[in-house]
Amino acid sequence: MSETLNRLRDMARPDRVFDFMVPDVSPVDVRHGPILYMEDVTVSFDGFRAIDRLNLTIDDGELRCIIGPNGAGKTTMMDIITGKTRPDSGQVWFGSRHNLLRLAEPEVASLGIGRKFQKPTVFEALTVFENLELAMAGDRRVWTTFMARLDHEGRARLDEVLETIGLEAERDRWAGVLSHGQKQWLEIGMLLMQRPRLLLIDEPVAGMTEQEMHRTADLLNRLAGQQSVVVVEHDMGFVRSIARHVTVLHQGSVLAEGSMDAVAADPRVREVYLGAEEERHA
């Protein structure tokens, strides 16, 4: 009886009328290695090529740092992965099954790609607890959201994440009154609530104190292994403290890739950075 009812309900759903409209939510297939695969991606704004034939592969469980001077296309790259910007050409695959270029932002998010913005954006009028609760994986439809009550399992998961990001004591404070570093951690925590496969983190330590930076490095190192993490960062010291594998972007494409030491020794990278350095001093 309830089986039939469910089927009827399924048929009544507008997005279930046609097969091709059924969103592809099958699990991410990483048997063939990379969790994220970008090939020949190009995007331009008004003739300016922000991303120029970019190729990038991220392995499952990897912690990858992406560095590059201003305007190298780091943020645009993240926009493309999360579906905010559509590239002019190229391919972006999540695992070997999901073509990210066909999906809208919420769909990308529900596939398990979480993004942390450069500027911390948490919901300031809600508490830390409520922020995490909203981020919790689950049915996002309006009615179910309205009827949603936090169950035991969810509460446990919330406490677990609170502990990971070290904000147990702040659980009932308004997010608006948190310090800058705490907001960054809260935001990472919100991403974790979604049980992401891939975390995109944009400049996590900008504006942090030394102490906060250490804690952040700790946090990111702990996360790697459970999920793939891509960190975009300016701060070389911080990158050195967490990175095993570094990619250098320059003018929209990959300039160098390898371990931190190898990359730092690369003359082209030195030129790009030193050049940028000189300009900054000029």
Partner: peptide
């Protein structure tokens, strides 16, 4: 959340 940070809410997966 939508009122204060609409884009963020969308990234959380809410329609």
């Amino acid at each position: 959340a939508t009122r204060d940070a609409e884009a963020r809410t969308r990234f959380l997966g809410y329609r």
